[in-house]
Design a protein around this nucleic acid. Structure first.
Lengths: 405, 405
DNA sequence: AGGTATATGTTCCGCGTTTAGACAAAATCA
DNA sequence: TGATTTTGTCTAAACGCGGAACATATACCT
């Protein structure tokens, strides 16, 4: 039930049907590989002839390849299996965070090809651009075997202007209107895609191939770190809004009379559950207090360790954050009714401690019974959700549905 | 950039291209009528031959009709103008509210055909069903000239289970799991569509034909009445979520330590800006206080009248609500970044008084500069947004984009 | 070992739809 | 009256789905 915009629509041309079915076939191969032409025909509910033609087109374009002949299940000719061709081409994912910047090389399916490397994030945008370009080229040079690089995806903890390819505002980095894409593209010589890290994270989940992760396409990713990043997917599409700034649930208030948030407003969700907020609570001071930040010496990991070791004050600080996390999640559930919520960030290492608190806080404010049973999944740091999201920025467009009508 | 769901997709069949282009043509006629075949061909950027075939198909189906031959602008053959055929068929819109239930007959374009009739809403679901069916049949009988009725749309102030056609929960009506659709369909003998009133309102705006209202398809409607209804449109599509309960921004908190809300939680936005909240504030009592409700004798309209007459206490109560309204709108802007927000409800009659307060409150909490300049439009009660939304439930599906890929 | 059954993949033709262009009809202007 | 322009229709070609036949390849049965 989508309305056709009478001022911006796409007609079905002679090749549109083919384009649509080609993308469907490509996605089915991606989701079900290894898969044969006959399998495809059954999955798509078309004749084998049509599937065969679609496959030969994808083969010609080099998007898929024919692997070994598979074992037949019963009798009959054995199928030739098809795979997404991610040989000899790779993608670089970059995750810029306040403290460090991480780099990872993957194939087109998002499978990790090397180890995650990192360096301290320079505070200055130009310096970071220089250093990042140097590092990316270095990483690619040391992975000559994986073939040509299709693109570089960059996840940034801030709002991104897609048109300009610049970072509008990244509070934790202290950036305003920093153009990253064009300088990086020029320096590296490979297309660069930038996106907000919350949006990148939810994209990573949307495009994950693990069967248990493939949901109905209504997903939310909440990344709890220094700030609170949120990415939303509706109907299989990233929620961008008019200026690509949608998804900032971190600054929806829990209490407008609450503590001051880094954004200038008061009582934002972020001001209650970010790592900084939790640490501040532990040290018994206001988030906005001046003076040396506790993070430099004492991190959220340390706090979680103390809590696990039996420090009641640490546990209390974390439990408070857990409750506030749940209360905010309830707002997201009430507002968006997603089929699944993912939680990322350091707090996930304490998930076993806090899960009951989070879930009961969700139930406290959720309007419906099924809202309270919304799936909440934790994404551990080892899965590098931001890096995988950055990779998805590059790899996913090739698999996206064609724009029609 | 939508992901194709590998478990639920639609293949392009032989007739899919035609189906797509047919819908586009239909929408263009709807948006630009009167319009000629040649105009359509130009608008769609196709040959006149194709446009002609599409048009003849639409003519055969009776969806459009050929009107008078238009005047030629320059020289050359004069065009035959095409119109959406809404002669001899009508739609009934029903708006169920806590106090009264309203009925309106329109044509397929949503143009009002008669006067709005209403009756007091029976508290009991079965009684309402009986009475409503009787009234609808009566209204249709008195409008024999407008032709056959294509369907009845019903807007309900509560959550709707689309599959069952029932109202899951309507707090102001005190309903739980009341099946409306099937009994009404059986009694009236015409297809009945039910939807939440906030969602219906935003649909009315999405499908409005006034050129200045046709936006980018990222819309929010906030209906301020006894409760707070919100409907959201993203990319030209209603935001439903997994259980069709998305959009409940009314129960996102402004302050979790705030007054108790009718939903059971505390400090919901609704508990600050609903008419009941404003009245309670005026009378200096808690929203949750027991005792006789003030609404029965003294309404929000009375309060606004007193404010306009110079009652400082009334003005203060309204101003408070205005500020809270703006603070909540800021959350919606931060969360969804819509291109346009519509405000409905009795409070709109005081818009000239409160607009500056609302807008400054929005700016107070909005994260970006352009967020603060998000368009906010008032929809006066005379436009009957809920009734027009109810009508859109019936009329819009015929114009919706086909599901593809 | 040979025949039969079954599954895969290819090929061919029918038909619907877009694409391109020609043509008739209708109206204006010189 | 004839040239020009615009509208609307018509025909042929290209493209892609729909359906079925055919060749290939493997397993099972006798």
């Amino acid at each position: 039930m989508r309305k056709i915009n009478p001022h911006d629509f796409k007609i079905a041309r002679r090749g549109t049907s083919r384009e649509i079915n080609r993308q469907i076939a490509l996605n089915l191969i991606r989701a079900h590989q290894p898969v044969s032409r006959a399998d495809l025909a059954r999955l798509m509910n078309v004749r084998r002839g049509v599937a065969s033609l679609l496959v030969s087109e994808l083969l010609d374009e080099g998007l898929i390849f024919e692997g070994a002949v598979g074992e037949a299940v019963g009798r009959g000719r054995r199928p030739t299996f098809l795979y997404i061709d991610s040989r000899q081409r790779c993608v670089v994912g970059v995750d810029i965070r306040a403290s460090r910047t991480y780099i990872l090389v993957t194939d087109l399916m998002g499978r990790q090809l090397g180890t995650v490397s990192s360096f301290q994030t320079p505070k200055d945008g130009d310096l970071l651009t220089q250093e990042l370009a140097r590092r990316v080229k270095q990483v690619l040079a040391s992975h000559k075997d994986v073939g040509a690089c299709a693109g570089v995806g960059v996840a940034v903890p801030g709002m991104v202007d897609l048109g300009a390819g610049s970072v509008l505002h990244a509070p934790t980095l202290g950036w305003h209107n920093v153009n990253l894409r064009d300088p990086l593209t020029a320096l590296i010589g490979i297309p660069v895609h930038i996106e907000n890290s919350g949006k990148a994270c939810v994209l990573a989940q949307l495009w994950a191939t693990r069967a248990d992760v493939v949901g109905s396409g209504n997903l939310v990713f909440v990344s709890v770190s220094d700030g609170l990043g949120v990415g939303v997917v509706v109907n299989g599409e990233l929620l961008r809004g008019k200026h690509n700034t949608a998804g900032e649930f971190g600054h929806v208030p829990l209490n407008i009379d609450g503590p001051r948030c880094s954004c200038g407003a008061t009582g934002c969700w972020e001001a209650y559950v970010s790592n900084l907020a939790t640490l501040s609570r532990y040290f018994g001071r206001e988030l906005s207090d001046s003076g040396p930040k506790p993070t430099a010496t004492f991190t959220i990991e340390d706090l979680i360790a103390r809590a696990r070791a039996g420090d009641a004050k640490a546990m209390a600080a974390i439990n408070s954050s857990a409750r506030y996390l749940g209360l905010g999640l309830a707002s997201i559930i009430n507002a968006l009714d997603p089929s699944r919520i993912f939680i990322g960030g350091e707090i996930t290492t304490a998930w076993s401690l806090i899960e009951p608190i989070v879930r009961s806080a969700v139930k406290e404010r959720v309007l419906t019974e099924f809202g309270g049973s919304t799936e909440i999944h934790v994404v551990p740091a080892e899965e590098h959700p931001r890096l995988r999201g950055a990779v998805a920025l590059v790899a996913a467009p090739a698999f996206a549905a064609p724009m029609v009508a």
